[in-house]
Amino acid sequence: MKEFGYKNATTITEALTLLDGQNARVVAGGTNVLPYIRSGKYTDCRLINIRDIKDLNFIKEDSDRITIGACVTISQLKKSKLILEFVPALHQAACVFADPTICNTATVGGNLASASPAADTAPALLVHDAIVFIKSLNSSRSVPLSEFFKAPGTTVLQRNELITHIEISKQKNSGFIKLGMRKSMSISIVTAASSVTLNDAGIISSCKIALGAVAPTPIRAAHTERFLLSKKPDDDTLSALIKATNLDISPIDDIRASADYRREVTPVMVKRAIKLALYEHC
């Protein structure tokens, strides 16, 4: 283990000042940073701890939006009644995230900033139209989550920037499902999230599908969404989305599964995510 400089920031401004123009890295939960240090991905830099910054740790409700501070832990998401009611997909993602000890320290901001294609909160947040709010010492900006990820491990974030919070829209009919080799402590083979609205005739009037671990970044599944729009979410429809879903994804062979297997099971996961979203309609 390398020796690292370490500074505990207690305010957003202090953190941003420490980050500005320096060879520094943000650490919140540390569940990614420590493995990065061990594997040599991070070397010789200063760690700026932001987990004690109170202004980064909150879950708030407006009329049609929920705002989540970047340092909210996965356990907090899991326990939050607001998330359970208005962002069910995110609640479900938190429930199958890693294991209890990781959940107690890993943060939602960290899960996004690490930009793993398999980040479990990402598909859930994508179907809730998440917007990521970013600050540096001299500026602020916001980016839709769908434009936030650039490549595996890469986002639009600059080295001097910090995610402060994430804004998402309320939607009671959303769902998330994960396929992994274990029920706990498992990096996803495929994840699928959905947010679905039906009209009075039971026809899909709006629909958002997001997928994880089947492309270089977590993605919105545009072909699948178009395929589903104006259809009834019955078994025939859900069994026929294979073609559309396969147009959305570009999976690879990795240590967890082959690309072929991911192509086989992604449509199944989409189907199940939709069923979960519509659970109360069943």
């Binding site: 294991d99 080799m181 274990r182 029920k183 706990s184 402590m185 990096i187 240590i255 967890r256």
Partner: peptide, 22 residues
């Protein structure tokens, strides 16, 4: 996941022993 003498699954995140949940 031995591949030509290389152990690809060399830690517990890739070598799946069951957890209590499983």
């Amino acid at each position: 996941q031995w591949r030509n003498g290389i152990t690809k699954a060399n830690n517990f995140s890739t070598y799946y022993i069951p957890t209590a949940a499983d």
